[in-house]
Design a protein around this nucleic acid. Structure first.
Lengths: 193, 193
DNA sequence: ATAGAGATGAAATGATCGTTTCAAATGTAT
DNA sequence: ATACATTTGAAACGATCATTTCATCTCTAT
């Protein structure tokens, strides 16, 4: 029977993620991926099918990481305010730690590719659904607990927060001033209270 | 003395803008530009120097258009509320008219290139300054007229609105539902009243 | 031990990349 | 009309693109 895949797939995906994140999809060459992963060309094609195949797996990997972080924060939150603030705190931390101004891989990819590739578009739509569902759920709870107002429906506020997060990631590419960013977040969240 | 440039530079820039907007910088090839502009390769290099040179001019062209639209709206506005709403209305109209989900050229470019090319980074920083100055100016006036609250400084609100606009452009790539978008805008602007 | 399935390495595929070259065409100032 | 700076067209540049090929190596199941 077969020789089994020897490389650490997760480690390879992390290395590939770094390259795609830094250079974007179209800016990344297969040679870049070969160099970054220390894998042979053939092994990449054997294991991931194509550059796009590898990128899709990178996207999922990145999304799963983010989801895990968000979920952890939401589950441990005392209440809805804590949960929402946790989500924005994670986002803020990610922005401040992004020394080379790469921004968010998913936001970048949405802007680069969702009008060019239907697999990417589908991924982005389901990512959007996931984010909206998470936010709407927290807001609903907050409204039931009467710590969030009911001026707008939970779904409407979810769209608002989803939009704010994307905006924050865009602003955070060039502005890493923690005070500025925290202020934006406060202004965004004050709408709910 | 010389034969003079025969082609319509503005028309060429518009055609080039369409291509770059649709495919992004790295996704656009010189052949794409030759095809779109009906210019010869040599003429492009003669007149624009390089692919990046042409792109920079496209960016300025796009920015000037946007600035003109914004200024017109702001100048004709009755008051600060009108001015800010005008800016968001223009943005909304642009999103709704963007049938092929290209998003905003400047936002896309910021996410694709500001960490890779210092000319682009400089452009984006000055674009940011311009936007912030415009917004801060309107907000200041609105606060002096007492139609905007003073919970935050004009500069802080400017950052908040700038972030919201970028977020709106990201959300607008996949969501063209006018009701959803208007609702987001209303929620954003209610903070000021 | 050995057969055989899959991983690997290195080279080559044709296509396309951004850019350059240069002779020929063009139009203006004299 | 003529001189000549500039634009234009077409071909070619070497480099790099994503992907394929295939012989060799490696490991597992028998």
């Amino acid at each position: 029977m077969p020789k089994v895949e020897t490389f650490d797939r997760t480690h390879v995906l992390q290395k590939a993620t770094e390259v795609f994140h830094k250079k974007g999809y179209n800016g990344t060459s297969m040679q870049d991926l070969v160099d970054a992963t220390d894998l042979n060309r053939s092994s990449i094609y054997n294991s991931f099918g194509s550059k796009l195949g590898m990128f899709m797996e990178v996207l999922s990997h990145y999304q799963n990481n983010a989801n895990t972080n968000f979920s952890k924060e939401v589950v441990n939150a005392y209440n809805a305010i804590d949960a929402i603030e946790g989500i924005f705190t994670i986002t803020l931390k990610d922005i401040l730690g992004d020394d080379d101004r790469k921004g968010c891989l998913i936001v970048n990819c949405k802007s680069e590719m969702s009008n060019q590739n239907s697999s990417i578009k589908n991924f982005m739509e389901s990512n959007q659904e996931r984010m909206l569902a998470m936010l709407e759920d927290i807001i609903s709870k907050g409204q039931m607990e009467k710590i969030f107002n009911e001026n707008q429906s939970a779904n409407q506020y979810a769209w608002y927060l989803y939009t704010s997060i994307q905006g924050l990631r865009m602003t955070g590419i060039l502005n890493k001033n923690e005070g500025d960013l925290k202020n934006i977040i406060n202004t965004v969240l004050n709408v709910l209270y």
